[in-house]
């Protein structure tokens, strides 16, 4: 054993991310997070990684309140500004690439190379969505040629507070792939991190907190999905829910609860093999949490019909 090996490393206490702050669960509960069974190397399999906070229903409620508070400012920011903020996230993630590579390797049991590829793809996904913020309205909106003297414009708007049940397998790339499109368009998100792989999500919060993403725009909860997600699905001040990380039975239960205030629901992929997060993301996730507002206004004429000027 060398001199260096003798040093005991400093461990990180993982916390929730709510309203731009890093609280512990109000319940005081934590749960043990271990390395993926397939995690290789000397690190060992099933090794203890951390005690993650086990968020309660009240933590979920606080997260929704924080998200709601953030909606006005974030959706009211210019699309250009949101794009810059999202790009800043990519920059910060790039700077901490090594850290995430290690965390993803532990979480998903990937080799270092494969894990690095996941991190790179996640960074690139932020860049992809950073570029979309000021284009989605042009793609999803429309000037409508109505049969009358009216100006008529349809424009997309964020739906508000979106609960995101993050993918259970892909702890970083999957998470970024579902989170970035939600906030790119101006929504605020409450994320239920992958139950057994929450650490990359909790660490991502640190990047978000230092990337000019306003507090409350993204809130990250770790814990038991089946405990947290129903609270969010039933919450009357949540506008939409992304069920990607829910299994079929939970997804159905959540969709039923979501009907109480007619949340917009994005169902998990029908494909039992899950979603291929390396594929072209398209615009489906961007537009899933948009409302279309159509505004009419008379155009009229410059003067009374037929007048000289």
């Amino acid at each position: 054993m060398s001199q260096a090996d003798a040093r005991l490393s400093v461990l990180k206490t993982y916390k929730l991310y709510v309203g731009g702050k890093f609280p512990r669960s109000e319940s005081g509960r934590v749960y043990e997070v271990t390395a993926a069974k397939s995690a290789g190397g000397a690190a060992g399999r099933g090794r203890w990684l951390a005690n993650a906070p086990r968020a309660s229903r009240k933590d979920a409620r606080d997260a929704v309140a924080a998200a709601r508070k953030a909606v006005a400012g974030w959706s009211g920011a210019t699309a250009y500004n949101r794009g810059q903020v999202l790009y800043r996230v990519a920059e910060m993630l790039q700077g901490r690439r090594e850290q995430y590579t290690a965390e993803v390797a532990d979480a998903e049991g990937l080799s270092k190379a494969k894990s690095a590829a996941q991190v790179d793809a996640a960074i690139d996904r932020w860049v992809w969505y950073a570029g979309w913020t000021d284009k989605v309205a042009q793609v999803a909106g429309a000037g409508n040629p109505v049969a009358g003297p009216y100006f008529n414009l349809s424009a997309p708007e964020p739906t508000g507070v979106v609960a995101v049940v993050a993918p259970q397998e892909s702890a970083l790339l999957g998470l970024v792939s579902v989170l970035a499109p939600v906030i790119a368009t101006g929504n605020a998100a409450v994320v239920v991190a992958a139950e057994e792989r929450p650490l990359p999500a909790l660490s991502l919060a640190e990047v978000l907190a230092t990337s000019d993403v306003p507090g409350g725009v993204v809130n990250v909860l770790s814990g038991r999905t089946a405990e947290i997600a129903p609270t969010l699905a039933a919450h009357q001040d949540v506008n939409a829910i992304d069920l990607t990380g829910a299994d079929a039975e939970l997804a159905r239960e959540l969709e039923v609860a979501a009907a109480d205030n007619l949340k917009r629901v994005l169902r998990p992929s029908a494909d039992p093999g899950g979603t291929d997060w390396t594929a072209d993301p398209g615009t489906g996730r961007l537009t899933a949490f948009l409302e279309t507002k159509t505004v009419w206004h008379p155009t009229g004429s410059l003067g009374v019909a037929g007048s000289a000027y």
Partner: peptide, 24 residues
């Protein structure tokens, strides 16, 4: 927070104009 906003007019409809709601 409404799917259709009529400014200085009301209850205008057209097949080219999307119609539908927010929230409930």
């Amino acid at each position: 927070r409404a799917g259709v906003v009529w400014a200085n007019t009301f209850n205008k409809f057209d097949p080219a104009s999307p119609f539908g709601g927010y929230k409930e």
